[in-house]
């Protein structure tokens, strides 16, 4: 098994990415530019996350990959296979056993521990992109801490919908300094951003890496009279009965029948096994 260097990327590239990661950890929430490589998958499929995972993996690691909380969807399966083949690392679907977890759009329900690394796939790292399209300007706004525009977005939500309708990629302020896009995780997951594990965010197409060190304060933006609320579907899980987990809505027939199930498949399976 020597067709590839360990974890696909060459050592110089991994070194470059690790530097960006270290810089990101030193300045929580700051978007560090890095020389993103072409990966054997299309942009938008997690090229940023894969590069970050490749840079932090060691042969002793156990890897878990989830896509919207599930271990068995296309994106998760193919990235897991990719690292099985190119790095030969052990893989698992059990959240507690993994040392590196690459995720797309979810934080696992089970709280992560010290020593674990959570790697996010990020499509658009710039939280102000849709309000200010110029990169030169958004960088200046970050540098000078001019974040009034972020609240304009929330204002627009309230004026149009009566409440803050942003349900995913909900912006947070990190350690009172940088405003950060937590990648498109549901806002239900926002409170979990303050955790014991290291969180790394990789955006391949946009060539940015940013990070949250363990126990970093990440406050969701809001208004005094419209405070932040972590919302989820108002149902218990249809399979395991959990009332505290984030739910997917599944259409089960063509007569309007629907089922709410945990989006975190590992969490749901464990609860079902324990109940049996």
């Amino acid at each position: 098994m020597q067709e590839y260097n360990f974890a696909y990327l060459d050592e110089q590239t991994k070194r470059m990415i690790r530097r960006a990661i270290l810089k990101g950890l030193a300045i929580p929430g700051y978007q560090v530019p890095f020389a993103s490589r072409e990966m054997p998958m299309p942009y938008g499929w997690g090229t940023g996350g894969v590069q970050v995972s490749a840079a932090v993996l060691t042969p002793d690691d156990t890897m878990k990959v989830i896509d919207q909380g599930a271990d068995d969807t296309t994106n998760a399966v193919s990235i897991r296979k990719f690292f099985e083949r190119t790095a030969g690392v052990a893989t698992t679907t059990v959240t507690g056993e993994a040392t590196v977890i690459q995720t797309r759009h979810r934080i696992p329900e089970e709280s992560l521990k010290e020593g674990q690394i959570l790697v996010y796939q990020v499509p658009i790292p710039e939280p102000m992109r849709f309000l200010e399209p110029r990169e030169t300007e958004t960088r200046k706004m970050h540098a000078l801490e001019e974040y009034g525009l972020m609240h304009v977005k929330l204002y627009e939500d309230i004026s149009r919908h009566g409440h803050i309708a942003t349900a995913y990629a909900y912006p947070v302020k990190v350690e009172g300094r940088y405003v950060m896009d937590p990648s498109p995780i549901p806002k239900f997951d926002n409170p979990k951003l303050e955790m014991a594990a290291i969180q790394l965010f990789g955006a391949g197409r946009e060539q940015r890496i940013y990070a949250l060190p363990p126990h970093t304060r990440a406050v969701s933006l809001d208004f005094e009279d419209h405070p932040f609320e972590a919302s989820k579907a108002d149902h218990p899980c249809g399979l395991c009965g959990a009332e505290d987990s984030y739910l997917d809505e599944v259409i089960v027939d063509d007569e309007g029948g629907r089922l709410f199930v945990c989006s975190d498949t590992d969490y749901c399976t464990h609860r079902q096994e324990a109940a049996r």
Partner: peptide
């Protein structure tokens, strides 16, 4: 409202 929010107004009402 943008300029108000830019100088720190955080009360929607």
């Amino acid at each position: 409202g943008e300029r108000l929010m830019a100088v720190g107004a955080r009360n929607y009402g």
